[in-house]
């Protein structure tokens, strides 16, 4: 059974992620201590809430540095929604605040004049298993930044609302999703299962 440490900043709702991990046979636990990240086999950085307060909380708990180190060294890590955004350099949501800077891009507000928040099931296409994934967000990495991510070795998946944005990235065992795999039906569940069992090719098949 896989032990999975879910970063609990007290700000994010982690129950859905926890339930999803249990459904794929893992043993999730909430953690908020730096040493627990270093020792963990799998780490999930969930995300509901706002960029500024979440980064402040990661720094206050001493989690920012170990998370960054883990992501850069390729330790199994899953960032979900805001959790993906926190891995970026910064966000228009809180311009002065620096992110974990694992992904060499910034997060931008979704363009004006569209339905916002982007909430619902949007097609993520291009891979072996094109599917709808569940999104609930107002900020995202713009599609134009996909190239910069690819140069750094990240597999990039995009979706449109209606303009392209980065829906997810993967490099080895590090996976970051703007959508919620824990709420994305059987497809999302398969993605979590593949990530947990190191089947990175299958993760990539979902993501490409």
């Amino acid at each position: 059974m896989r032990d999975v440490m879910i970063i609990d900043t007290g700000l994010a709702n982690v129950r859905s992620v926890q339930a999803a991990l249990e459904r794929v046979g893992a043993r999730p636990r909430r953690v908020s201590q730096p040493f627990e990240i270093a020792a963990a086999e799998f780490v999930v950085l969930p995300g509901v809430g706002a960029f500024g307060p979440a980064m402040a909380e990661l720094h206050r708990l001493g989690l920012a540095a170990p998370l960054r180190l883990r992501a850069l060294s390729g330790g199994p890590l899953l960032g979900v929604c805001l959790g993906m955004q926190l891995l970026c350099e910064g966000s228009d949501e809180m311009p002065g605040v620096r992110g974990l800077a694992v992904l060499p891009v910034r997060v931008a507000r979704l363009p004006a004049g569209i339905r916002a928040p982007h909430m619902g099931w949007t097609l993520v296409s291009g891979g072996d298993r094109p599917s709808h994934a569940y999104f609930a967000h107002s900020f995202a990495v713009a599609g134009e930044d996909a190239g910069r991510l690819a140069v750094s070795g990240w597999q990039v998946m995009t979706a449109g609302h209606p303009r392209p944005f980065v829906a997810g990235v993967q490099r080895g065992d590090v996976l970051a999703c703007q959508f919620h795999p824990e709420l994305s039906g059987d497809w999302g569940q398969d993605l979590l299962d593949a990530w947990l069992n190191g089947r990175t090719q299958e993760v990539a098949a979902c993501l490409q």
């Binding site: 999803a20 249990e22 459904r23 569940y134 609930a136 709420l183 994305s184 039906g185 569940q189």
Partner: peptide, 12 residues
């Protein structure tokens, strides 16, 4: 709510 959550892999 907890019981429903455990069963659902879609939003609630």
């Amino acid at each position: 709510v907890g019981q429903v959550r455990r069963r659902l892999n879609i939003p609630l």
